[in-house]
Write a protein that binds this DNA or RNA. Structure first.
Lengths: 256, 256
DNA sequence: ATGTCTTTGTGAACGCGTGCACAAAGATTG
DNA sequence: CAATCTTTGTGCACGCGTTCACAAAGACAT
């Protein structure tokens, strides 16, 4: 998971816990799938299964938003989609800029899930002059020199950093100075930002290293376990194999 | 942040809390940078600043690994790099397969940070027959039909899913059946896996939606705040602007 | 209208993670 | 060797998040 909010001491949003906010998009996705199948209502149990969480947790999460369910029946899908979208500020169609159009930046630019999720790629920015003008995902790449004007002209408040680590802090500083207050960072660096700016990070190698840790532990356990019990592999399924979209959702970041 | 470990009730690794495990790669990166600059020792304070965490937290984290520091001096950089690497199982050079070679899959394949971090791309797999044989990042893409044999022949236990959401569960099932026990999922889907298989997910649109939530809240606060105070922007920096690598680290997932 | 049945909404208990603050440990100096 | 200074390692308290378990609310049938 990408983690790393940056320092928000008091204020506690508006009573909505951070952990709940992080799950709202998950619920929204499951609800959207139901909506497309014209399912009118869902119980907390069903929806929780589709989202891969505990039903009590889901109900508590929703209770922070208000009482949108009907006892004995469940939740109205359309209404809930509306409420969560509103809570997340998605009706707003946020413009975002992507800085660093390498493989990853290009993959992000091609990501189909932007528009349908309330975001719009306002501009692609790269430091390489050779890239300037070259269209990526139908959008011409612009040079870093124009970063400030692009942000101000489009009223961009969310920036995505997909540059090499060495350039990340510098780009970040410029973004913030130009008015960006939320940053999604794909570079493997700790970014330092002023108060009031949110940073979330996505880091491939960290995720892999966490998996490696558990993998190693499993290997160790198995070694000691096989010595005792015959190690019968349980076939129990987690997350309930809910058909999360026969149509499927929009590709992760791009079709294979 | 990519989140989403899957169900590990008791067992608690070996006393090392999950939250600590998630930070070890962060410490390792900071330590590696120091090591390259031939810095012999660091205090918890310095290292914590470089990793962007609280120094007390860092000391507590290290205390789970053992007592590797020297009071009055700090921690021996090389020794700590060794200990954390060992704890994460990185000396092992884990082979990984990437399934779904679209923009994202290609970006991941080109990621320079694999080798230096203890991972090796064993194979690239795609369902499109037209891709078969085509080299990406110097590695020829192989067809999905060979998935099982590739995994078994190479002893792969970690798989990366970068396919469209519709294909993710199916790919996941095949990976698991073939012996993969850790999965990094980039597809926007809830994967269901048997017990004993770890799943971590990275989801762009979820991260953006979380940012949008805070962004919206900031906008609302500002509207009410400007009515009261003149809203002086504080220039306080979080995370301490530690020079996280003048050389910089390897690009996030690819150079821009 | 009354009773039954389903499902929500939440009070309360518990556990994990965080951060403070300080004692213990060792380095260093005279 | 004693005194001082630095920095670790951790006991403790607090707060957030999760889960249980159940009462209240409404749908639905009779």
């Amino acid at each position: 998971m990408a983690t790393g909010r940056t320092h928000r001491p008091a204020t506690r949003s508006r009573g909505i816990p951070e952990a709940t906010v992080a799950r709202l998009p998950l619920y929204l996705r499951a609800l959207t799938a139901l909506s497309e199948r014209s399912v009118p209502t869902v119980s907390s149990e069903e929806l929780a299964a589709a989202a891969g969480v505990n039903s009590a947790k889901l109900r508590k999460d929703f209770s922070y938003l208000g009482s949108y369910g009907t006892r004995g029946v469940g939740y109205d899908v359309e209404y809930l989609v509306y409420q969560i979208s509103r809570e997340l500020g998605l009706p707003q169609d946020w413009p975002v800029v992507i800085v660093g159009i390498g493989n990853l930046g290009a993959a992000l630019a091609n990501y189909g899930g932007f528009a349908s999720r309330g975001f719009r790629v306002a501009a692609l920015i790269d430091a390489d002059p050779a890239m300037a003008g070259k269209p990526v995902a139908g959008i011409p790449v612009q040079h870093t020199d124009e970063l400030e004007s692009i942000i101000q002209d489009n009223g961009v408040s969310i920036g995505v950093i997909a540059t090499p680590a060495g350039a990340a802090q510098q780009v970040c500083d410029r973004l913030v100075a130009a008015g960006v207050t939320s940053i999604l960072n794909f570079a493997p660096t700790v970014l330092s930002v002023p108060d009031g700016v949110d940073v979330r990070k996505v880091d491939l190698s960290i995720e892999l290293q966490i998996l490696a840790f558990h993998e190693q532990r499993k290997a160790g356990e198995e070694a000691t376990a096989t010595a005792e019990s015959p190690a019968v592999p349980t076939a129990t399924r987690t997350e309930s194999a809910t058909d999360q979209g026969p149509d499927g959702d929009v590709p992760a970041v791009m079709p294979a």
